[in-house]
Structure formats: C-alpha cells, structure tokens
Design a protein around this nucleic acid. Structure first.
Lengths: 154, 154
DNA sequence: TATTGTTATACTCTATAACTATA
DNA sequence: TATAGTTATAGAGTATAACAATA
C-alpha cells in the first residue's frame, strides 16, 4: 500500500491539481482569443521570428533558427518574406561574409507595436468592466503568474 | 483639446493598460509552454477537432467544420485520420443517409484525458513550489481570470 | 575540411472547385 | 434542384538532402 500523506499535504495536492486545471484552461483560452485580435497579415512563424529579432537585436540566421526551433531553410524563407515586406534588413557580417545578420526595421517595430496595442486594448477594455475589487485581486496575482511563466524570478 | 479625465479614471486607465500588457504576455507564454507538454502525436487541428467532438457529443461533419472554423474538405481529412487511429467513430445518420455523425471513442477520450493530465501535472508541479501565500493569491484571482475568458459569468 | 546559408524536393495542412449520393 | 460530404487540385509552411560560398 502507498504511504499515507498528511492531511495538509493531501489537501494542498488536491488544491494544486484543481488550480492547475483551471489556470490551464483559462490561459489556453485567453491566448487563443488574443491571437485572433492580432491580425498582422503575417503567419505565426513570421510574427514569432520578427518578435525574436526585435527582442534579441541583430542576429545571424543560424541563431534565429535555433531560437525559433526551426530548420535553417525555414528561417531563410521566413526572413526572405519579412525582408520583402521591409520588416527586417539583412546584411553580410563584416568579419565573416558567410554569416548574414538580420535586424528589425522601424516598419517591423511599428507592426509589432501595433499588434500588441490591439491585443492590449482588447484586454484592457475587458479589465475595465471588472469590479474594482476583482481588478485588485487580479493585480495581486499577476506577479505570481509571472513567476510561473518565468517572466519574473521568485 | 481632449477633455481631461478625472484623476481616478486616469489612474485606472493606466492600471488597466499595464495589467493588460502583463496578463497578455503571461497568458501567451503559459499557453505556449503548455502546448509543448502535450505530445499526443496529433496535429493541433486534429486535437482540436477531437476535443470538440468530446465536448459537444456526436455531431455531423458539417457542424464540426463550423465549430472548428475550417472548410468541409479539411474536416473530412481530419476525421479520416482520427477514425483510422480509432479515436472517433463515424456512422451514417438513420433518417438522412447523406449526413455522417462523428462520435468520440473511449480511446479518443483516453487520449484527451492523458494530454490534459500531462499539462496539469506540469503546472501543478510548478504551483507546488510557490509559497502558500502566493498560491492563495493566485487562487483568489482564478475566478476573475475565468470571467475574462468567458468560462465564468460575472 | 568545416561552417553558414541557400536551393531542390517532399510531406503535411488547409483551401477552393468539381463531383457523387441522397433528399 | 438543394444539400452533405468527398475527391481533385493548389498554395502555404516546414523538413531533409544536396549544394555554393567562405573560412
């Protein structure tokens, strides 16, 4: 027979499982809804690559492929498309002309900014309809959620 | 010039925008992480269709296409794959033999259950590492988050 | 000879258009 | 003639393999 857990441990275990299920469902749904608000004209992989270049600054195609967890030929295509739309620039590295550096353009930054603005706006609108007490509860929990996603250190 | 908002309204507005940005980032990241924990061997569209059939019960291919927001031929293919793996069953309707009813099999239910179990497990493990006070704050905010996603009525 | 990135090719997923079976 | 679903075909997106340029 399995060892018997203490009542407190059992209660916490049950609570964690229930919270996990609820949080998983909500996070998944919210992310799906937000994705529908973006409407950038870019595919998910294109948008993701653009955001990565913005966050990490100018980087080689190989580094971008690794960050995005895609194969090098895929990155070549994605960057070609982004470049043709003027969202990123590509330049051969000065010291090693095999490597190509990709960097975001101001058009690219503006597109990302606009996409985030739309998602934030949608969400902020909904937040504004909450009771002040509900907003306060959510605000109190935000840093906990950020710890779970690794945005914030415990 | 724009009308001047009251200090309280301005403060709330700013707070909503900041909360929206933080919540958006966390929800998006958490959903992405959870997706990686699933590993069902099914594509996203296959998994989504299977879950829809589970939630709504036996339904026609047309109804499934509408729910999934995909074209009828896509649903035909998805259901063919799910059927070949024994995850759903297909049966001609008794009264109108043009329509095909799709229903989930016990294998299909088990696959979904297992997928959710894995995601929940990953999340519950992380929840268990939080301080009790942090868990409590998250628990207090869960129903607010559920209101935002429409899971729960205000 | 090793490395960076590209081109060639194939597979999956999804769409539109044309078709079949039933009503 | 209208409807439910399927087959035919095409267009993205991504992968592996073969290749070109540079180190």
């Amino acid at each position: 027979m399995a060892p018997t857990a203490s009542p407190a441990a059992t209660r916490r275990q049950t609570g964690d499982a229930a919270m996990a299920a609820r949080l998983r469902l909500s996070a998944t749904r919210l992310a799906r809804i937000l994705r529908r608000q973006a409407d950038t004209g870019l595919s998910p992989s294109q948008l993701s690559a653009l955001a990565t270049v913005e966050i990490h600054g100018p980087m080689t195609l190989g580094a971008l492929a690794e960050h995005e967890n895609v194969a090098p030929p895929s990155v070549t295509k994605v960057v070609n498309i982004l470049e043709s739309q003027g969202l990123v620039g590509r330049e051969a590295a000065a010291n090693d002309r095999r490597v190509a550096m990709v960097s975001i353009t101001s058009d690219g930054s503006h597109l990302l900014e606009e996409s985030r603005r739309r998602k934030n706006q949608w969400l902020a609108e909904r937040l504004s309809h909450l009771e002040p007490e509900q907003r306060a509860r959510l605000a109190d929990a935000l840093d906990v959620i950020e710890i779970l996603t690794g945005v914030k250190q415990p």
